[in-house]
Design a protein around this nucleic acid. Sequence first.
RNA 1: GCCGAGGUGGCGAAAUUGGCAGACGCACUAGCUUUAGGAGCUAGCGCCGCAAGGCAUGCGGGUUCAACUCCCGCCCUCGGCACCA
Length: 809
Amino acid sequence: MNYSHHSIEKKWRAMWQKNKVYEPNLKNAKRPFYNLMMFPYPSAEGLHVGNMYAFVGSDIYGRFQRMRGNDVFEPIGLDGFGIHSENYAIKANAHPMKLAVKTEKRFYEQLSSIGNGFAWNERLETYDPEYYKWTQWLFLQIWKRGLAYRKKALVNWCSSCATVLADEQVIGGMCERCDSEIIKKELEQWFFSVTKYAEKLLENIDGLDWSEKVKIAQRNWIGKSEGAEIDFKIVGSKERITVFTTRPDTIFGATYVVVSPEHSCVENSKDQILNYNEVQKYATEARKKSEADRIREDGEKTGVLLKGIKAMNPASGEQILIFVADYVLSGYGTGAIMAVPAHDQRDFRFAKKFDLPITMVICPHYPEPTCPILDDAYSGEGHLVASGKFNGMKSEEARGILTSFVGGRKKTTYRIRDWLISRQRYWGPPIPMIHCERCGWVPVSEKNLPVKLPFVKKFRSEGGGKSPLGMVPAFYAVKCPRCKGVAKRETDVSDTFLDSAWYFFRYLDVKNKKAPFEKGRTKKWLPVHMYIGGAEHSVLHLLYTRFITMVLKDSGLIDFEEPFAKFHAHGLLIKDGAKMSKSKGNVVNPDEYIKKYGADAFRMYLMFLGPFTEGGDFRDSGIVGITRFLNRVWGFVVKNHGLGSRNQESMEVLEGKIHHAIKKITEDIENLRYNTAISALMILLNAFEDCPSVVSVEHIKNFLKLLAPFAPFISEELWSMVGGKKSTTIHHGGWPDYEERFLQRDMFTLIIQINGKVRDQFEVSSHDSQKKIETMVLSRDKIKQLLVGKVVQRIIFVPGRLINIVLSA
RNA sequence: GCCGAGGUGGCGAAAUUGGCAGACGCACUAGCUUUAGGAGCUAGCGCCGCAAGGCAUGCGGGUUCAACUCCCGCCCUCGGCACCA
C-alpha cells in the first residue's frame, strides 16, 4: 500500500506554518535551545544536495530536542553578500542586486521543500540594508576599540579578473574562477587586530565541546610558538638585525643571517650594500612571484648575498654573511632569521645551494666525540657541542641560558595574522569610514547608517586596486563629518566573513530597528547550543566569529565570550567516489528526488547512506530501500492501528525490542549517528511485521515518535490517523523514554567456543551459575564429540555472552 | 613535508569496556503473485569446498583463552595546512 507524499507534504507544511509549530517565543521561552546550521551562500543555480544533507542532519537534531520539550530555535537565512554570489552574477551575466531577488526566492522554496523545522519569521539576508546596517555598526565598534587599522599589505591579485581575491579563493596558486595565476600586490588595506586576541582564542579552545579535529585545526592556525628575539649587530654600524628563533640553543651554529625581501635593513644599509641594485631587483621579483611559481619551486631556495655588510654572531663573535631570500617571510616573527643549517631543513638546503658553512652544534649521540656528517638537518634534541663553555649542556636547558647570554629576550609569536577585511569589490557592505585631508579617517556617525550600497551598472572590478564604488563620485564625494571639509568615503567593502561572523545574534532580533540585538535575548539564547556546519569553515569562520564575540564581550554588549557551546562538522557527500562538481558532471539535483520520492524518503536516504559526521557516497539506487520502508510503515499503521494488541504472551519480547530501539535511537541522535538510528527503526518495523497481533496503539505511537525527526511528514499524517482529530502535532508530542527493566533479558544465546572458534550455541537462563552452565555445555553431544581424546586446560566464561573451552596443545 | 580522518562482502555500511565479523539497506539468485511493465511476498546470499571443514576486517610482526578493536613497523586513499624559523 503506497502513500501519496505530495498531498501530505503540502497539507502539513501549511498546517505547521499556520500553527507556528517551529516558532519559539524568543522573548519568553522557558527552555531555549538554539539549533544553528551555517547559512548557505546562494551562489550557484540552487541548493546543492550537499547543502540539503547538512540542513537535514541539523534539523533532525533540532526536532529531537524539540520533542524532548525544549523550545528549539532553528533559524535560516542567506549569506548572500560576497564574492561567491558576485562571481555567480558575473557568470550569469546579471546584476547581483537583481539576481539576489531571484536566488532568494529559489533558495527559500528549496529550503522549505525539505521539511525542516525552520523559524521562517526570523529569516535574514546579509545583503538586506536592515542587516548590513548593523554589520557596518559592528565595524564601528571594532574601530572604536582601536582594533581596526590600515596598513600596506601584499594581497592576492588576479590580473585576468582584475581584482583582489580572498585567500580562500586562491586554489593551488590559481584563481578559483578563471584558473589563471595569482600574484601578490601591495595595497593599503583595512585590518582587524585578531592577533591581539590570539592568546585568548587559543586558551578558550580547551573548554569547548567541539570535535577534537576542529580544535586541533584552530590551535594550528593560531600557531603559538615560544622562542626568543636576539639582536645581531651589523659590523661597523649602529644598525642591527633582530631575529626570532625557537632554538636559541643552536646559536653557535648560526653561520649566516637571512632577511625577508621587505626587511628594513636593506634600505637602512643602502649605502654600505655594494650590490644594492641586484638586491632590490631580487626583492621586487620575489614579490611579483606567483603562488604557482612558489609551489613549482618545491623547496628550491633563492636569495642574494648582501655584499659589503656582515653581521656578528653574538654568541661566538664571528662575522657572518647576510642574505636576502624569499623563504623568510616578512609577516612572521621579525622578518629575519639566524640561519642554522645543521639544525633546520630550510637553512640546510639554502646553505647547500650557496655553499655556506654547516656547523653542527647539537649532537644526538653525546658524549661520542664525533658527530656524523649530515645529509639533512637534524632538528631534534641533544647535547651542545662546538658551543664554547656551553658544551655538553642539554639542548632544552640551553635555550633559556643562551638567550640571556647573548642579551636576547623571550618572545612568543603567533602564526595567525590580522584579518584583512577590505575588498575592492562591489557586492558587500561599504566600509563606513570617511577620509578627510585634515582629520584623517573619521567614522560615519551611527545614526547615518546604513551606508547604502548604491545600484551601480558597472559593478565589475576594473583593476588597479580600485573598487567599483571608486568610480562613483555620487557615492564617495562627501563632507567630513567632523570639520565639514572636503572628504572621500571609503570605497572598499568588507569581507563576507564579517557578514557571517555575527548573524546568529541578529536572528534573535531581526525586526529590531534600534539595535543589532537585545541583551535579554542574547542572554537567554546564547551561546548557541548546537552548531553544525561544513568542515571547510572549521578554521576561518569559527575563528572570526569567536573574535567578534570576544570584542562584543569586551564592549560590554554581551556577557559571554565564546559563541558556540557545541560544534560538529558534517561529512562530505561524494558521488561515484569523487567530490561532486559540475566539471565532473556528477552533481545531484535534489529537487528531482524530492519530487519523485518525497522529502521524507529523501531526508532518510541522505541520513542512511553513512555516518553524518563522515559523509558518504550518494547512489541513486539506495533510495528505493527507504521508499519501501516508508510504504511498509504506512501500510502497517493503516492496517493495524485500530486493532489493538491481541496476544499478551509475546508482548514482553516486543516490549524489550521497543525499549531497546528507544535507547539506541536516543543515543544515536545525540551522537549524530543517524544511519544506525534509521537501521534500528527498520529492525523495529521488521519485528512489528513479524507479530502484528501483538502490536498495540501505544507501540505504534512510540514508533511514530521515533520516526518523526527523520520523516516529519508521514509520521505527522499517521499520528493524526492514530490519535484522532483532537491530537496535536507529533513534533511537540514528547520523546519516548525507555525503561531499564524491559532491557533485561531472562534468556540469552550462549556462544560455545573451543580454542576461540565458535562450535555451538544454545539458549540459557541469565540466572544460571557458571558451574551449571559448564555442566550443560560439556554434556552436549556436539561438544562431547569434539572433545574426544582432548584435555581441557581451562574454561573461560563471560556471563551473558560466551564460554571458551581451551584445550592443551 | 606537517596535521587530521580512514582502509571490513559485488556496493553503502554495522560491530559498548577486546567476546558470534558483516546488523540494516542496495544489488543479485530462486520460488510465489501480477495480463505485461513496475511493485509486492517468501527464501537464499563473505570466499573456497559436495561435505566435514578451512580461509577472511590494507600488509608484516607482537600481546591475549579470545584482536576490526590494544602495541610495534610499513603501504595506500581522502581532507586540511603548506618555506611560520
